[in-house]
């Protein structure tokens, strides 16, 4: 299912409103409005607080770069396969233009590489919502598969932070097949006795949920992240009924038994580091 249409940037509307009412006298990048509690926050305060609202603890989306900086020790990240870039392999109408636009915002839908997390060498893949809402195309699948193969060969644990609208429809069946390909690579890593931790961030949906996001030995999620296979809009259309409150939030999915823990952003790195050490990594 390709569902990234419903996950428009949350603060798009607010930004437009701000332009009209509040910000004729200050540079707009100085302020950011929390989409949850509507508090105006100083951008610098919000960023210093790990992109979390200082008032209501709403977790803003982070770019892959910001998340890599959050999780890895300073200057330890060595990026792999940075040159792999999406191509319009099916000559899908309008896809070239979409790719061109996306490339201005981010390198790819996922960045992979090795880095240390509190000193423990780890294979890390971080998806990027800035690139076509983290949708999974062939490059996404290929990079993640290579990451798992590298980790299996070098006996490294894998940590993936997911954010995705699902499989990328402009690559048709090829993007669907990435679900199988990545799952195969996860299985081999798992069969080699190695640890795989997933961190589900807002939103994690569709083909990514139905493949590597849900295949971790330990599955963590950020507070209030949307975690779904079919997105809320699709379900509302099918069911023609209102969805339960907090449906498909990380907390809801936790209560239903499909993830291990909801972890606030500030605790992510120490939590992952503890888990890695409990599995014997970083002892030599």
């Amino acid at each position: 299912m390709d569902l990234f249409a419903f996950v428009k940037p949350k603060n798009e509307l607010e930004t437009t409103a701000d332009k009209q009412h509040n910000v004729p006298f200050v540079p707009e990048e100085m302020w950011v409005k929390c989409p949850k509690c509507n508090t105006l926050l100083l951008t610098t305060d919000m960023e210093e607080n790990l992109h979390v609202c200082t008032h209501c603890h709403h977790h803003f989306r982070m770019s892959a770069k910001q998340r890599i900086d959050l999780l890895t020790d300073k200057s330890s990240f060595r990026e792999q396969d940075k040159d792999l870039t999406s191509k319009n392999i099916l000559s899908f109408p309008g896809y070239n233009e979409k790719l061109e636009k996306a490339c201005k915002k981010a390198n790819e839908s996922v960045r992979c590489g090795t880095g240390t997390i509190n000193g423990v060498l780890t294979e890390l893949c971080v998806m990027d919502a800035d690139f076509m809402m983290g949708s999974m195309g062939t490059v996404t699948g290929e990079k993640i598969t290579r990451a798992f193969e590298y980790a299996t060969e070098n006996r490294l644990p894998v940590v993936i932070c997911t954010v995705s609208g699902g499989a990328r429809m402009q690559e048709g069946i090829l993007s669907l097949m990435q679900m199988a390909k990545t799952s195969g690579a996860v299985k081999r890593h798992s069969d080699a006795g190695l640890l795989y931790i997933t961190v589900l961030t807002d939103p994690t949906t569709g083909g990514v949920t139905a493949s590597f996001a849900m295949e971790g030995d330990i599955i963590l999620a950020e507070p209030n992240a949307l975690v779904a296979f079919a997105g809320p809009r699709v379900i509302e259309q099918t069911m023609r009924q209102k969805l339960p409150k907090d449906f498909q939030t990380a907390e809801f999915v936790l209560q239903k038994g499909f993830i291990d823990a909801v972890v606030p952003r500030a605790s992510l790195k120490p939590t992952i580091a503890r888990l890695l050490k409990m599995h014997g990594y970083g002892e030599d």
């Binding site: 299912m1 139905a210 779904a228 296979f229 079919a230 699709v234 379900i235 099918t238 069911m239 969805l243 339960p244 449906f247 498909q248």
Partner: peptide, 8 residues
């Protein structure tokens, strides 16, 4: 696959 509340 069915997109519905129970399925999710």
């Amino acid at each position: 696959a069915f997109p519905g509340i129970g399925a999710e």
